[in-house]
Lab assay of single mutants.
Amino acid sequence: CHSECLGNCSQPDDPTKCVACRNFYLDGRCVETCPPPYYHFQDWRCVNFSFCQDLHHKCKNSRRQGCHQYVIHNNKCIPECPSGYTMNSSNLLCTPCLGPCPKVCHLLEGEKTIDSVTSAQELRGCTVINGSLIINIRGGNNLAAELEANLGLIEEISGYLKIRRSYALVSLSFFRKLRLIRGETLEIGNYSFYALDNQNLRQLWDWSKHNLTITQGKLFFHYNPKLCLSEIHKMEEVSGTKGRQERNDIALKTNGDQASCENELLKFSYIRTSFDKILLRWEPYWPPDFRDLLGFMLFYKEAPYQNVTEFDGQDACGSNSWTVVDIDPPLRSNDPKSQNHPGWLMRGLKPWTQYAIFVKTLVTFSDERRTYGAKSDIIYVQTDATNPSVPLDPISVSNSSSQIILKWKPPSDPNGNITHYLVFWERQAEDSELFELDYCLKGLKLPSRTWSPPFESEDSQKHNQSEYEDSAGECCSCPKTDSQILKELEESSFRKTFEDYLHNVVFVPRKT
């Protein structure tokens, strides 16, 4: 048989008469490798580009789960590009990614509803959504962080984005990388972005840091009482949809009607710091009717980097990364020049730590249904340095008659930039024990000054392991946590139920 035959053949030295091919099969003959313009397919066939392209389009058009959109890589027609490569849609070739590779997620039936953290986790790592997304989240724990972890990498949506009755959302900033909504599939009414009845939605994105392009379709905003109209108009300008909307697409009466839409800028007039305090004062603000001013709200939190936005980490279910302080308005003076500047002394802060701070007014709604208010920009203030805590785990070892090696770990709280350490030492008198000992005694162990690591005695271990207080009263049991108490109650309830079950099964009433 021919060298490319495997198993047997019907005619000697003829690659077209093989029972099976050793390498690849091409047009009725066995070959060692697939010549151009053919590609290896499933490690035994040679196919042309049209064959591989037909497989790709067949799966793409069917949208069946589990099928493969075949691509070409290293002269092979394979189910998908290997790690580190992405497909070129024009020629199906796998090309190296520039940075992290995109991950295209194809949605069944063309859309997916995100109504819980669990459903959001199914899209973790996706960068391109081939379909439409509907966000409908009523509640949950730590929602802002969970949504950002699972949806934060999405850069492109081919269909539309719909935010509907998501009472738990305060902001859409968890879509931190969303840059493009194509609108290839539109919501009824030709809408590519749809926001309806979101009672706590206050911000779409921080438009000073976020760009969003909507290729096709219109915007729809109705019944978002805490979303200011200025935020919607800003989205029109940034996304390129200005002029597409009709009169009733953006409701003037049901958007922002319960919001404090600040239209003035508060400026800080005085800032002073110490290692654990920050004193702030800002310019006074009074609405047209000074009785509408209820006070100020001061927001602050630790910020290692200057990239904080107002609604980071917030949701309507209680999660809030900001510390909020309510401040009463100052006494009002008739003389504008003698107006008191409101302020606040922030206490209990960490030394040498940068804080993000902003302040906003708290006002009631005027009778004319106009909203007044003022808010400052987010500023960054760093507390002063102070003395560091003591170095940890000092170790001293003498390696000769004239040297001592000293080692330690950095302090747990540096409280500033540590530039150097101060080492103090003092000579001590020799131990009298060394002169009084009889060095001729056998088995004498000389006193040693070398360091030995501390260890816990058996008594201390027994005390720590004991669940009861000892007789001397030195140790006591740790208080039980809520989960331990709940577990004990469940076990007790189970024992009672099981005992009742045994009584009912074992003891049967005697027939009379």
Rank of each mutant, 00 (worst) to 15 (best):
A149W: 14
L107F: 13
A120L: 05
R370D: 05
K301M: 14
G243V: 00
P391Y: 04
T213Y: 06
A120S: 05
N141T: 11
L147N: 01
T113K: 12
F221A: 12
Y194D: 14
L133F: 02
N211Y: 04
A144F: 15
F290N: 01
F358L: 04
L212C: 03
T118A: 09
E237P: 05
A251T: 14
I163P: 01
V170Y: 04
Y191S: 15
D292M: 01
T309Q: 14
G189N: 15
A303P: 07
Y355M: 05
N320K: 09
F268W: 11
T361Y: 00
I181K: 01
T323W: 12
E156W: 07
G295T: 02
I357E: 00
D326I: 14
V128N: 15
K103W: 05
P391S: 01
S166Y: 04
R370L: 04
S119K: 05
T254K: 04
V397G: 15
R347A: 03
L172Y: 06
A303I: 13
A120C: 03
Q382I: 13
I357G: 11
A356S: 07
R247Y: 11
N255F: 11
G295H: 01
E146K: 10
I357R: 02
E237S: 05
Q403F: 09
F358Q: 06
S239M: 09
D328G: 05
E237G: 07
N136S: 06
D312F: 15
K267V: 12
I404L: 03
C261S: 02
R281H: 10
D312C: 14
K407L: 08
K226W: 02
A356L: 02
K337R: 06
Y285F: 05
I181L: 11
L293P: 01
R138K: 01
N340W: 12
L298P: 05
P394C: 09
K103Y: 05
L161S: 01
E302R: 14
F296Q: 00
K234H: 08
Y194I: 13
L172D: 03
G131S: 03
V381Y: 14
I379R: 04
I271L: 08
L266V: 03
E187P: 04
R347N: 07
V104H: 05
K253F: 14
S158E: 07
Q245E: 13
S401N: 15
L107V: 14
K350T: 09
E302A: 15
A120W: 04
L406G: 00
G373D: 02
N150G: 08
L252Y: 07
I135V: 08
S171E: 10
E155T: 09
G313P: 04
A316R: 15
R202Q: 00
P329A: 08
L180W: 08
F311M: 06
R370G: 12
E146F: 09
K253P: 14
L180V: 11
G110T: 07
K209Q: 06
T254P: 05
